[in-house]
């Protein structure tokens, strides 16, 4: 899927919100049913150009997340396709019951776009970090959870969500990332992508951490360790086949994500492995309320850097099969 000639760490970086607003506008031009719903989050969602192009179709309910999600559910009842765009910490934390009852249980065609997720807000601290969102939403029936890794995958996931009928949660990264995919990338729900082949150990990642996992595999290759890198944009439904194959074919699995180290991608992989093919799994994630620091600093601090991921993989490989 992706050919890594130069190190991925040296490629240009992109803010996925730019791809988000560009794609949303493109979708809105093509389909009058699409509307944006925000909680005063026009600027933080980078939706100024969308508002200019579609002034009536950007619903701003003010700083009121419960209302925002309920309103989106009602818009969907009226035939609209609402894309709720709000900082993921407030969208998921403050409106969790509306997400459960009005969106998932009611099965309304609402797309929840969690902006600036994970520790993107860095120094603003744990109140503004959204590291629990994946675990919370993964626990809700009838909810699809997607964590794109780059602008190409963000755009592709949005197009898929607009064309699908039902509740979807998509994380939209603020922290800049290099492109992982080629322009012809096609998003398929519940499908893992082998971005790098390997037989010694498997790295499974998504979102802002995926490129760091690829960089870790580059490091490991120089030491003669062949690491498979699986991109897992869909946390729910999970590609269990790819996980079980990794458990069978390599010495173990390292998961790495910008989220709490329980209940998210790592949790989903661990559950699958335990049930289908017990294997060693190391879950890298954020273990506690983060200390003060920039987003990049915090990822390094919690071992989500290329070095940290490579170290975890090395440890698994050294224990043998």
């Amino acid at each position: 899927m992706s050919i890594v000639e130069t190190s991925i760490a040296d490629r240009p970086r992109y803010d996925c919100r730019d791809a988000y607003v560009e794609t949303l506008a493109e979708l809105a031009h093509a389909d009058h049913r699409i509307v944006g719903v925000v909680n005063d989050s026009v600027g933080s969602s980078k939706l100024n150009s969308f508002r200019k192009a579609f002034p009536d179709r950007l619903i701003n309910v003010g700083i009121a997340e419960q209302d925002m999600v309920g309103v989106a559910s009602g818009l969907a009842n009226g035939g609209r396709i609402p894309f709720v765009s709000a900082a993921s910490c407030f969208l998921t934390g403050r409106a969790l019951e509306q997400i459960k009852a009005d969106v998932a249980y009611s099965n309304t065609n609402v797309k929840l776009c969690g902006m600036s997720p994970g520790v993107a807000y860095g120094e603003l601290g744990p109140t503004h970090h959204s590291i629990e969102d994946i675990a919370w939403l993964r626990a809700i029936s009838n909810m699809t959870v997607i964590v794109p890794a780059d602008p190409i995958e963000t755009a592709a996931a949005l197009r898929w969500a607009a064309a699908s009928d039902g509740p979807v949660f998509i994380r939209v990264s603020r922290m800049s990332v290099p492109k992982v995919y080629d322009e012809d990338y096609e998003f398929r729900l519940g499908r893992a992508i082998t971005v790098r082949g390997g037989d010694d150990v498997t790295l499974i990642s998504n979102g802002t951490v995926l490129w760091r996992a690829i960089a870790a595999a580059e490091q490991l290759a120089t030491e003669g360790i062949s690491a498979r890198v699986l991109s897992m944009p869909t946390v729910k439904p999970l590609d269990t086949g790819a996980v079980v194959a990794a458990a069978r074919e390599t010495a173990g699995i390292v998961t790495a994500e910008e989220a709490v180290s329980g209940g998210g991608l790592g949790g989903a992989v661990a559950e699958t492995v335990v049930e289908h093919h017990p294997a060693r799994v190391t879950i890298l994630g954020i273990r506690e309320f983060a200390p003060t620091g920039s987003a990049g600093y915090l990822l390094d601090h919690f071992g989500l850097s290329p070095d940290g991921i490579a170290a975890a993989a090395r440890k698994l490989v050294s224990r043998g099969r």
Binding site: V71, S73, N77, Q98
Partner: peptide, 25 residues
């Protein structure tokens, strides 16, 4: 039935959303 209700304080926001959709239409 138009909305799965039960937890209190949910219906009014949903109704506002529907009324908005009607206004847009």
């Amino acid at each position: 039935v138009e909305a799965n209700t039960g937890p209190l304080g949910h219906g009014l926001p949903v109704a506002v959303g529907h009324a908005l959709s009607a206004k847009l239409d």
